[in-house]
């Protein structure tokens, strides 16, 4: 199953929208860099059953850690878990436009 990595804000880029258009059941979503602003976006609700991960350091760098703590559906991860997720999924698709 695909790991989708979104690294751009949904407010400045179509990365999230395009990612969701290609999202299949069983896929996982990882938010990194400005992609952590997706935590604030209503479109996240459309992924009811998907695994959602977020790079904790990138969220904290943007003042999102309190918001992230309230979201049970999102697993906050570190770099080591990121690499592990990449071993568990194939392919890895990066969305950054």
């Amino acid at each position: 199953m695909t790991l989708h990595i979104v690294s751009k804000s949904p407010y400045t880029s179509s990365a999230l929208k395009e990612c969701l258009g290609a999202f299949a059941s069983g896929d996982a979503l990882l938010l990194i860099e400005d992609g952590t602003y997706v935590l604030r976006h209503p479109a996240l609700e459309t992924l009811q059953s998907a695994e959602i991960y977020c790079l904790e350091a990138d969220a904290a760098a943007r003042g999102q850690q309190q918001l992230a703590a309230t979201m049970d559906r999102v697993e906050m991860i570190n770099d080591a878990r990121w690499v592990q997720l990449c071993t568990e999924h194939q392919p890895i698709v990066s969305w950054f436009r």
């Binding site: 690294s7 990194i32 860099e33 400005d34 770099d79 080591a80 990121w82 690499v83 592990q84 950054f96």
Partner: peptide
């Protein structure tokens, strides 16, 4: 962009594992 430094961090973590 931040992704250049993300890539380096990721590479280090890959090798650490």
């Amino acid at each position: 962009a931040q992704s250049a430094s993300s890539a380096l961090r990721f590479a280090k973590t890959v090798l650490q594992q």
